[in-house]
Design a protein around this nucleic acid. Structure first.
Lengths: 127, 127
DNA sequence: TTAACTGCAAATCTTTTGCACAATC
DNA sequence: GATTGTGCAAAAGATTTGCAGTTAA
């Protein structure tokens, strides 16, 4: 794979953010320094970056995919009140204990998404 | 909510199948007994049935949503070889042990999707 | 009778793709 | 110079929605 200015910008943008942006949000932000950047290119480069394992895709039903600069496997919380995505870091051995149940299948990857209230919203909802 | 013939048909169709059909597949099947059934109605009724907890939505990135007549929480395997979805039944206490890690958030629901080879494909891929 | 539900078609939203041009190696 | 990547616009795919007519209570 050959170097590409756009792909590098997109990678840095995703890695520098913790808010799990969509392709559209990434494109809008980057147009400040790269006005000609097209949404098609952003989608193409994001797909490439996911394929080579530099970033991760976070899918929430009914919404545009979001992207996460944290390359290692972890989990996500979709806050049903403030609609933000928060990364969760459940210890790998706990996840492994769960996947060990899958005896006869061959696990390649997995995704755990929790729906509920993030710590802030949970705290503010208490009397 | 008032009774609806279409919604009842759709519920029975989803409950009677184990292949996690898409809205389109459900619509096509049901047109045999309800020729005028429209895809819009199928989507509307599926959303309603998910909301009231009678069925579950299964989302795989980049694909049309699928629906599962098994109302209770469980997990899914997306076979990367034969592209079928298989339900997994990991014991609740194992899942709970994992969710117990989420101390400060309030869990309402969760989805665990495993990507890999189903038992059939895993078996046939061995020498 | 009236409020909810449906069929139909058009609209919306997300993502991909074809193509001519530009950038990298 | 050959090939990969990009911008642009159009296309494709999934899902929602407006509206007029139908149906359940």
């Amino acid at each position: 794979m050959r170097y590409s200015h756009q792909r590098e910008l997109i990678l840095r943008e995703v890695q520098s953010r913790t808010d799990h942006p969509t392709a559209e949000q990434i494109c809008t932000s980057l147009r400040a320094e790269c006005p000609r950047l097209s949404l098609g290119t952003v989608y193409r480069d994001l797909n490439t970056l996911v394929e080579i394992g530099k970033i991760r895709r976070v899918s929430i039903p009914g919404q545009a995919d979001r992207f996460d600069g944290e390359a290692q496997a972890h989990q996500h919380l979709w806050c049903t009140r403030c609609h933000r995505i928060e990364s969760l870091y459940i210890p790998q051995e706990k996840v492994q204990a769960l996947l060990d149940e899958c005896q006869d299948i061959r696990v390649q990857d997995w995704a755990l998404t929790v729906f509920g209230l993030c710590s802030q919203c949970a705290a503010s909802s208490q009397e």
